[in-house]
Design a protein around this nucleic acid. Structure first.
Lengths: 344, 344
DNA sequence: ATTAGCTATGAAAACGGTTTTAGTACCTAG
DNA sequence: CTAGGTACTAAAACCGTTTTCATAGCTAAT
């Protein structure tokens, strides 16, 4: 079973032979790690060009104990949500000439563990994880021998300094407060799976806002759903059946809001004239919906950058114009569009 | 500058010392690559567990000349489009215990080259590229020493066997034919940048369909745009100013179609009652638009899988239940939704 | 009893680099 | 004429594996 890729790659030895110098001389020329005469330098470089020689990354990694890779594990690479984070990480590390090794945790404990073990074999100099399925306890256990590493989208008290996260409770509160400020009193909430921390936090924010404003909390106004469009659709139908005279809905993500929009349309309820709607995440679709969706944006790119900076700093990389000061806790931002109206 | 990650990783040497056997015996136990007595096996494994020993991937890669990585280069990791492809690749290779090394080419020739050079240093056993910016000539030159590798989303005659691509002309034709079949005669086309092959092919499909149906081709019905929402919006405004009595628009991607929808709405034209609209790509937003967008779907996941299978086959990986038969040319699929109506 | 053929093991040579050590040759100054 | 720099190069050690080859101790067949 041969590998074709590397088949006729030239080595430092060949370069040295053709240039008529020692191996160490070639290394010194390439890494500028010692005095070499101009003549020799030129000779070596010409052979390097001619052979199209590239130092073998694996050999370098082995001897320097540096792979120049950053490992990233997220639930699903293809989700627009995690994607923003990955993108932020990539932009940051690419200026340091490092590369990305990505894996999916598939929101399953075993998968998450496996992906981590995989990266721990020296494939990366640092690891950035977004784990949902495992417990805090698992987390601490698995990562205790990983340094440097960063956690994104989750706060774990014992690892506070390594966490980059967002205040989801604040976001939930902002969404709800906004609706209240527009005069709404009968405000429903479609939450994500309450097994997920994010969902719980957003719900807490909703509850806090309702309470703080003097309105009374009523569980009838709450439906637990699944972060999917179909779930949002069904949840909305169920809410409407309860005849609560709802004038506004806060959905815990944009996809569920899209489902809600569909359900409302089917019931001949106009958004925002009859019912106001607010989403969460501000993914791309929010601006394309009709009416375009008011939502709570999470600065995903910034969070990715922060996580990357965290590990790059720990690696002592300071070449670029990176921020060495890293923000850990991010604030959600309200993005106003057309789906919320003032209650008459 | 120390690396923390690997700091206290145990080596095979330590295992061998603690187990009181030779290094080669440990290797044999771990890889089941030779006869070992039950006793020894147990002794070794107990030390392995105790030390939580994991073989160093870099050392393994060096000696076996296998990194177990597949390199992927796409324009932009964060685009939903390339994401589908990446996702397909990931799902396929993860069952072979390989990992993904991803880079962005940023649709810039130099970036694409750089990313490729980077991977060529032995970081991956195979490479999958989606290059837009470079010429066919560059392509052939750069990849001539890369095997195995696959090209996705582009057809290069000299590399036919390594290409996984889609018939964009057919897609354009399907979209246009569909509109024609609904009775439309004044059909406009908003194309992507005509510097890109995909755009040209879709345009050709449009032209072919128009001609084949006996309608006359008229350049006034064509606007070149940029694949972005704002571009689709402007293009539509311009089309409407021409007073051509347009009853249907074929946009070369969904984002431009979304822009067109917005422009039409502003002009108080109803979709699909006044103007029918069809997009291309069938990205997620197509189903969320109102009215939901009829579009031409590209089987991105399948294409990613095909590309991955291409390189895995070349690597002689046959462990899983993968398809060893790989399809190179994919066919677009028409997805009917609500944005096209029969002309009265 | 000798030989052939196992099984279980270990020593050592790769793999392709970097880094350290130990020169060597050529000056210059005492 | 020699001691001590300077400016370089060569050789060796090492990184953590896999793999080849050698060997010792068996058993079974001639």
């Amino acid at each position: 079973m041969e590998t074709f890729l590397q088949t006729n790659m030239s080595t430092i030895k060949e370069v040295s032979r053709l240039a008529g110098v020692s191996i160490s001389t070639v290394s010194r020329v390439l890494n500028e790690s010692g005095p070499v005469s101009e003549d020799t330098k030129e000779k070596v470089m010409s052979v390097v060009d001619q052979l199209d020689y590239k130092p073998n990354a694996m050999a370098q990694a082995l001897v320097t104990n540096r792979s120049n890779g950053i490992g990233v594990i997220v639930n699903e690479i293809s989700s627009p949500f995690y994607n923003g984070i990955i993108s932020g990480i990539e932009r940051t590390i690419e200026s340091e000439d490092m590369h990305l090794v990505v894996s999916s945790g598939h929101n399953q404990r075993e998968s998450e563990k496996e992906a981590l073990e995989f990266l721990k074999k020296g494939r990366s100099d640092g690891i950035i994880v977004q784990f949902d399925a495992c417990s805090d306890f698992d987390f601490l256990d698995w990562t205790k021998d990983c340094q440097p590493f960063a956690v994104v989208g989750r706060f774990i008290p014992e690892l506070a300094e390594s966490c980059v996260y967002i205040d989801n409770q604040l976001g939930g509160q902002m969404a709800t407060d906004y609706l209240i400020s527009k005069g709404h009193k009968n405000i429903a909430h479609i939450s994500g799976p309450l097994g997920m921390q994010d969902s719980r936090n957003r719900l807490q924010g909703y509850q806090t806002a309702i309470r703080n404003s003097g309105l009374t909390l009523n569980d009838n106004y709450l439906v637990e759903s699944d972060f999917m469009e179909s779930g949002g659709y069904r949840a909305t139908k169920r809410l409407l059946e309860r005849n609560l005279n709802i004038t506004a809905i806060f959905a815990a993500n944009d996809q569920m809001a899209a489902g809600a929009l569909k359900a409302l349309r089917e019931e001949n309820l106009s958004v925002p004239d009859d019912v106001s709607l607010i989403g969460y995440d501000d993914v791309m679709l929010a601006q394309y919906l009709y009416p375009s969706l008011t939502s709570i944006r999470q600065p995903l790119l910034e969070m990715g950058k922060a996580a990357a900076n965290l590990v790059l700093n720990a690696l002592g990389k300071n070449s670029g114009n990176r921020d060495t000061e890293v923000k850990n806790k991010f604030k959600p931002v309200l993005v106003e569009r057309e789906s919320v109206a003032t209650l008459k």
